[in-house]
């Protein structure tokens, strides 16, 4: 058993697809009916076999989620995402588990870009 799809709710699928493809650098994978009577779009992430499912939620019935995106170099990805037009909620800052920065997508879902660091003995 493994996790394969991460649902992301939006009131504008087109805008949300553009965010993932143009800003985040992910790949449009196609449309698929995962749930009955639900329009959904698959986005392939940088991790093999892990997809984002964009689900229509015009009435904002489901609220918005929080996704943690792992990176091996937070400052580099923060810089590149900013250059690609992602608006960050804060600058990279130090957290107990590493260096992180937060941003929102156009639908209000929140993302934490985090570089996990092992401080015990990096050498």
């Amino acid at each position: 058993m493994k996790i394969k799809y991460i649902p992301v709710f939006t009131d504008d699928i087109e805008k949300q697809v553009a965010f993932f493809v143009e800003n985040m650098g992910f790949e449009f994978y196609g449309k698929k009916s995962l749930l009955p009577d639900q329009e959904s779009v698959l986005i392939r992430t940088n991790s093999p076999d892990l997809f984002i499912v964009i689900l229509m939620d015009a009435d904002k019935e489901f609220g918005r989620g929080r996704i943690i995106v792992n990176t091996h170099d937070c400052l580099n990805d923060y810089h590149n995402l900013k250059m690609a037009g992602v608006v960050f909620h804060n600058e990279p800052h130090y957290l107990p588990m590493g260096l992180g920065a937060e941003f929102y997508d156009p639908s209000g879902n929140q993302y934490l870009l985090i570089e996990e660091r092992s401080y015990n003995n990096p050498v």
Partner: peptide
């Protein structure tokens, strides 16, 4: 040479 300085200088 430890902690976040180690990671950032290496990057």
């Amino acid at each position: 040479f430890k902690g976040d300085l180690f990671f950032n200088v290496n990057h």
